[in-house]
Design a protein around this nucleic acid. Sequence first.
DNA 1: CTACATGCAAATCCTTTGCATCCAC
DNA 2: GTGGATGCAAAGGATTTGCATGTAG
Lengths: 146, 146
Amino acid sequence: MVCAETIVERLRAQGERLTVQRQWVIEALCASGEHLTVQQVQQLLAERSPALTETTVYRILQWLKERGVVAQTDLGQSGVVYQIIDREPHHHLVCLSCGQIVELDDDLMEGLRARLRQRYDFEPRIDHMAIFGLCRACRERGSDTD
Amino acid sequence: MVCAETIVERLRAQGERLTVQRQWVIEALCASGEHLTVQQVQQLLAERSPALTETTVYRILQWLKERGVVAQTDLGQSGVVYQIIDREPHHHLVCLSCGQIVELDDDLMEGLRARLRQRYDFEPRIDHMAIFGLCRACRERGSDTD
DNA sequence: CTACATGCAAATCCTTTGCATCCAC
DNA sequence: GTGGATGCAAAGGATTTGCATGTAG
């Protein structure tokens, strides 16, 4: 778990401009520990800082993404989420039928990363990936992709 | 390459209602062979069938997705695309810097699929996945995630 | 015939943009 | 002080919904 202060200091050291709004967003992401949508970030912060607009949250999350601080993931029906990239990337299994989301260890991705580097000379940024499919319960229930 | 007729017959055999609009969309996807956005499908068909609305294309693509006929992929800036699931799934490397998209063989995914089944009892639907990262040229140019 | 799909229009949601103001450096 | 960030409002685009009409089975 990366704490907000560490990230703020790192950015400051890089000569980035640190506004209160940027610090709020970083704190919200660190505190929740979960991936959050733009709207969730805004709502979380609205309680203590009503001034923060959604527009600004969008701009800040994009700014953090460009600087490699957060990862952006499209979870399908669950929307686009953002999360701090910490030392232990992790991923999600999203069930197409029931929508259940399960966390996934990153070591499953190592083989894939290695092969992408070797065969395609491509440096993958697999920090927070969503993999869709069917969970066991839904397969047993016989439901398909609906 | 799956031909439209095969798919139409398969659906009909399953007792699905086959309207002309549904057949048009299936034909467009098969004929192009590429992944298409909702808007592209609509534009392709607009020339010969002006009556088809975007709304209906949305509904038909979702219907096809629920029946396992098409895969939906979010390519980031390039939008959400749909593609027929044929016997040879394939994937895309999307460069975060230059936006270049490279096709990827499916056999790279086999290891991952196997491990997801074993360790998580999850049946992945990895038909058409987008992996983001940096291509060689952009890495050499020293650009990062922007 | 009847249930379900479509067309149309409008609503909704997500995201971006322009511009005046504000603030971190 | 100044360049860049924010707030606000508005635009833009993608996607969904309600309802009357059309049509496949």
